[in-house]
Design a protein around this nucleic acid. Structure first.
Lengths: 98, 98
DNA sequence: ATATTAATTCGAAACATATCGAATTGTAAA
DNA sequence: TTTACAATTCGATATGTTTCGAATTAATAT
């Protein structure tokens, strides 16, 4: 991974609200192992202190950085962590503190 | 580490130029093990395509996020990686892709 | 002392981001 | 087929960021 890609990932996680959104998706995905590690956004909306339009915007940024994968399930939106991206980023940063 | 702190770290690494600056400091520090893993900024300036004022600004952002530690050495500025911060951030992200 | 080099500060311009309310679209339920 | 709910789009505003050039400070060398 090059620095352009890595900086994009960092940027996606640089906003506190967006980072919390990402961490929530990660947490929910874990506890929903049987449903393919997915998380319904509607279940998160209430716990973050921002409106739906902003959440929609943040989700797009996370997806754009390949940090999450979203899919519509009827009326709802499901999201899950894209582990590959996080692992690749981790790999680079781990090189530094060896 | 809480999400406020983690998002600040991410923000500091979210700009490509600033990330490259950080990675350069990491690289230089490694090869200068005998000098306390320090890196002289003046040696980096030429390799980045931005002016000195901007580098000064970026260094402040990195130091502000506790990602690097800087110290004046006479006419020059020395910088080194603050491993604690990176390790703490890595620890959180590693929890996700287990 | 003066000139030189490294780095910082300041002010400004250009650009990007976060957030909102209102209006809209997509889907399912009554 | 209306109603209700989840999510998105749009336009606007306020705020933050990146970068620069000019001026300044700090330290060294001539």
């Amino acid at each position: 991974m090059d620095s352009a890609k890595l900086s994009k990932i960092m940027k996606a996680l640089s906003n506190q609200t967006r980072l919390e959104l990402y961490l929530q998706i990660a947490k929910q995905s874990e506890s929903n192992f049987e449903t393919g590690c997915e998380c319904f956004i509607t279940d998160i909306v209430g716990s973050l202190s921002i409106g739906a339009p902003t959440i929609s915007h943040h989700l797009k940024e996370l997806a754009n950085a390949d940090l999450i994968i979203t899919e519509r399930r009827g009326k709802f939106l499901a999201a899950r962590i894209n582990k590959e991206t996080l692992q690749a980023a981790n790999a680079i940063l781990s090189l530094i503190d060896k």
